[in-house]
Design a protein around this nucleic acid. Structure first.
Lengths: 248, 248
DNA sequence: CAGTGGTCTAGACCACACA
DNA sequence: GTGTGGTCTAGACCACTGA
């Protein structure tokens, strides 16, 4: 890295890449390979600058970029920490269903089933798996303020989550589970929303009449390297809640 | 502004505020009061630094913050421009309904009606208007790839849009209209999504059976000062399209 | 070529947290 | 007090654009 400081020439021949982006990538790699664990305090700007051989300002630019991506958390007077999948952060970043009147609340969950299955064609294509790969499939119900609002199914590539069947319990916040148990960090996700009607199973789960309009949310969640690692299909009752989307 | 450079003391007594944020605010004010028009080239960093009496680096930080908010567009070798409500930008920033198979497309629109009305209780509360204020109410249908997909109603505070009735035509991209005709710039918006069923009017408009599940999107759009200036309720067919939400 | 924004550095000082 | 991140400055050089 220090080489490119004074002599960017070699670098330039293969396509220019700002130093701070190279630094960013090398730091992201430490997150990916687990040398920096969620919640951990990382070295100060000055230490990183010395270690990597660039100025403090360049380190800062890389760290600020990672903070903007929710990979790090910086606290003045404290230091810089690896972002951890805490309830409150997950709540704001990934959970968009909000009661119509009232604040954002973390839902509670009840597991219905959990099994190993052959991936359907849809699962395989959305998770970029070979046909007939194994997936773990979890069905659960989620409640907001005591009422069941969401019936959802999670599909996980079995290869990325070995020993899933040995879990005694599947917690509410699965992203923390993925992180702590398999070192899988969710970085971003895309959701596709459609309106559909409750089938009889949905109706039984959600406590509504069949054919009630429900919001179907199809989420694909990606790890830090950009690989899809979770497919989640949520069927949501939106009679007393809504999906919140902010356009900036 | 130059005062606070060496002597932040007075400022500090009334609550510390970073210089670059003060600069940002003073530049945003130029957008609000119209001294900088959409599409216009603004002075270079060096010129602004001299004019305001801070360093180029501080100007840069303010300009980059505004760029991140989609208020400015910066082009290396060119200069810095005030962001304009261009089709492509609006398409990505504010229009989230995407055909299931295929690229994002800007919809076409057909106006059904346009009239001045008393604000309903809901309109008044969401637009922060006094009860019984006047609003313009526009009904229109929007098509994606030739098929009607959205039936929507727009409500605008009459006070903010004087002479609306004199318009010969209401264009597809109304945010450009607001900007060009009334100097109203939309900075951000929030959308609340619910699943509901098509009533007979929806069914007639959207060419579907009554009771078809549809996605109801309630948008409140805000100007640069954070005042609500548009209420938009869109009823969307999502049989061959979906609402795209990206979680980062 | 001149002028713009983009990167990188170096150093000073400020605000904040904790021991 | 000491050390952290946050702000601000100043200046050098690079990459891109259009004349």
């Amino acid at each position: 890295m220090a080489d490119t400081t004074s002599a960017g020439t070699a670098e330039r021949a293969f396509g220019f890449r700002p130093l701070y982006q190279q630094v960013r990538e090398s730091l992201v790699r430490r997150l990916i390979d687990g040398s920096w664990q969620p919640g951990q305090l990382i070295p100060s700007e000055m230490e990183l600058a010395r270690e990597i051989g660039v100025s403090q300002g360049t380190i800062r630019k890389a760290l600020n970029a990672m903070t903007a991506e929710n990979l790090l958390v910086r606290r003045q007077g404290h230091g810089t920490y690896v972002a951890a999948p805490e309830e409150s952060r997950i709540l704001f970043q990934f959970f968009r269903l909000v009661p119509d009147s009232g604040e954002r609340v973390f839902p509670t969950s009840r597991i219905l089933s959990s099994s190993r299955e052959r991936a359907t064609r849809d699962e395989a294509s959305m998770l970029k798996l070979a046909p007939n790969s194994s997936v773990w499939r979890i069905e659960r119900l989620r409640s907001l303020e005591g009422d069941v609002m969401i019936a959802e199914s999670l599909s996980l590539p079995a290869r990325r989550f070995p020993g899933f069947e040995k879990l005694e319990e599947i917690p509410n916040n699965v992203y923390r589970l993925y992180s702590e148990r398999w070192g899988v960090t969710i970085g971003k996700a895309t959701e596709k929303l459609k309106a559909t009607s409750a089938d009889t199973a949905d109706a039984a789960h959600l406590g509504c009449k069949p054919a009630t309009p429900i919001l179907k949310v199809t989420r694909i969640a990606f790890d830090l390297e950009g690989n899809p690692v979770e497919l989640r299909i949520s069927r949501c009752l939106t009679e007393r809640s809504h999906y919140l989307s902010e356009l900036r």
